[in-house]
């Protein structure tokens, strides 16, 4: 039993990781009060940037950072549309997805059919020797280990630093934040660009660690899952980890169910992750665990006279 369960759980962590990065990124953006439906576009641009920069410099870490920078750049476009030009956040986000996917496909054509070094499995000394836990969590690649730290840093920043509290204020009640001497527009810039950075990192995971390849459309809807998981997580990083692993886990599980020879239509098996996400959300909301969105989410800040 354990021989079968361990690979599934290890695969869960891996397939949850890119979604986790993207979910945290979108969460930061939304907590600053801006809805960005462009996650899919930012993620795929990140994947491409990571691949190209790693290929050019030979350093996957530089590629990883480049992915963040590319995501942030696209995020800045969203910020420009919504924070300066007062554009509707839904349209701007969707436009960003269309634009990003197109741009990545367009710029990425020469890189198809090539491969770059990327991140390989790296067992953590001592920890990887732990029974069960070691197998699941500590025989992964470096980017997975980074992703373990990420939610904690996120949580600490939002909870314990004045910057985090200010970002939340900009998301909850920009007028009050402004009255308190903060600059909610600047904070939202931070939220959107910083969020874009994290989303881009998620893209890098796909092209540098999960695989070492580039193909157009390789995010395959993971950005949208991240948008959904932010809500699923009630805008809290801890639950984002749970959501990303739940989703990744069911995906890994249904593939293994097939590999073991289950004679079930694959379309029905593939419904599992989506159905279960709604079900778990409904169950936790019904228990009263639900938290509303940041009150200022999706509402632009009117320029003051």
């Amino acid at each position: 039993m354990l021989e079968l369960a361990l690979p599934i759980l290890a695969a869960t962590v891996q397939s949850g990781t890119p979604i986790l990065y993207a979910t945290l990124g979108e969460m930061l953006t939304e907590r600053s009060g801006v809805l960005n439906l462009g996650v899919e576009g930012m993620m795929i641009i990140g994947a491409l940037a990571a691949f190209v920069v790693t290929g050019a410099t030979g350093s996957p870490w530089l590629g990883f950072l480049a992915a963040g920078a590319a995501g942030a750049l696209l995020g800045a476009l969203h910020a420009l549309a919504c924070l300066v030009f007062q554009g509707n956040q839904v349209v701007s986000g969707l436009a960003l997805t269309i634009f990003g996917v197109g741009l990545a496909d367009f710029l990425g054509t020469p890189f198809i059919g090539t491969t770059v070094p990327g991140f390989d499995k790296l067992s953590v000394p001592l920890l990887s020797a732990l029974p069960v836990f070691g197998d699941i969590f500590f025989r992964q690649d470096a980017l997975v280990y980074v992703s373990y730290v990420m939610p904690l840093v996120f949580w600490l920043t939002m909870r314990r630093t004045s910057l985090g509290l200010a970002v939340d204020a900009a998301g909850e009640h920009p007028a009050a934040a402004s009255a308190a001497g903060l600059d909610p527009v600047a904070l939202r810039w931070f939220g959107v660009v910083g969020g874009g950075f994290l989303v881009g990192l998620g893209g890098a995971y796909l092209s540098l660690a999960y695989t070492h390849l580039w193909t157009s459309g390789m995010t395959a809807g993971r950005g949208w899952i991240a948008v959904a998981l932010v809500i699923f997580a009630f805008w809290r990083p801890g639950r984002a980890v749970f959501g990303a692993y739940l989703f990744g886990g069911i995906m890994a599980f249904q593939l293994r169910l097939q590999a073991m020879g289950a004679d079930l239509p694959s379309s029905l098996l593939l419904m599992l992750p989506y159905g279960l996400t709604v079900f778990v959300l409904a169950a936790s909301s019904a228990r009263g665990g639900g938290v509303g969105a940041p009150r200022g989410l999706g509402v632009n800040i009117e320029p003051q006279e």
């Binding site: 690979p7 459309g217 593939l255 590999a259 379309s267």
Partner: peptide, 22 residues
């Protein structure tokens, strides 16, 4: 194992790993 995708390298790799696991 059916991946139900034509080009999603991550899912297709995962599908291959699920076969390796058995």
């Amino acid at each position: 194992v059916w991946s139900k995708t034509w080009y999603d390298p991550a899912t297709e790799k995962e599908a291959a790993k699920s076969l390796l696991d058995v």
